[in-house]
């Protein structure tokens, strides 16, 4: 564990907490894409299939449980909690899951490190995570008005990806045989998807203005 990996995990954790805070205390999920949240449930469920079979550390197992539990509870809140569900932008959040999942399934079957069930599922989760934010970015683009918590949520998620890239660079130079092209390329694609959002986030921060995306 290096400082970049820890910073990445902590920003990831913070992003989830910010979203839960918004949903749990303000009872609002306005501007939050249920499609993206459901894709994250699938990402974590397929990636952490090994939670009972491979043990790395208490830290890892605990974080896996937190990410699984929080993503499930966010989707539960948005679907079944009456007050929260009322605030959901259903008409705007129209992205189709299969449009993203199908190419990821095919790609995972074609390109993987090992052709085993767990490994293909793990690889699928990497590909899907790379594009899971797209419905959220489309929703932002459509609603344009972004409240502070939603903006911070996406900013922290993007930060998590950025720190993971630094972690890979660090591990590549400090650990022998640490080469994982699939993880790196899908991670890089994922981070690049945030670039546009980051640009406008920093612009609004610099000018001390409310974040607003161009039409």
């Amino acid at each position: 564990m290096n400082i970049f990996r820890l910073a990445g995990d902590m920003t990831h954790l913070a992003s989830v907490l910010v979203l839960l805070l918004k949903i749990h205390t303000i009872k609002s999920c306005a501007g939050v894409s249920l499609k993206t949240q459901e894709l994250y449930v699938i990402v974590f469920a397929t990636r952490y299939l090994d939670i009972f079979t491979s043990f790395v550390s208490i830290y890892n197992s605990l974080m896996k449980l937190i990410f699984l539990g929080s993503s499930f509870s966010i989707v539960w809140y948005m679907r079944y909690h009456k007050a929260v569900h009322r605030t959901y932008d259903r008409e705007q959040d129209t992205f189709r899951h299969w449009f993203l999942m199908l190419p990821c399934i095919l790609l995972a079957l074609l390109i993987h490190e090992k052709f085993t069930f767990f490994e293909v599922m793990w690889t699928f989760s990497l590909y899907l995570e790379a594009v899971a934010i797209l419905p959220q970015l489309v929703l932002l683009q459509r609603t344009r008005n972004i409240d502070n918590l939603t903006g911070q949520y996406i900013f922290l998620l993007g930060g998590y990806r950025g720190f993971y890239i630094l972690n890979w660079i660090y591990r590549y130079f400090t650990e022998p045989h640490y080469v994982h092209w699939i993880t790196w390329i899908s991670g890089l694609v994922q981070t690049l998807l945030y670039a546009d959002f980051f640009y406008y986030y920093f612009l609004s921060w610099k000018n001390n203005k409310k974040l607003q995306l161009p039409a």
């Binding site: 990996r5 090994d50 790395v56 550390s57 890892n60 990410f67 993971y164 972690n167 993880t183």
Partner: peptide, 10 residues
Amino acid sequence: DSANGSHDEL
């Protein structure tokens, strides 16, 4: 899985 370093990440 020590043979696959990416699996110790989240």
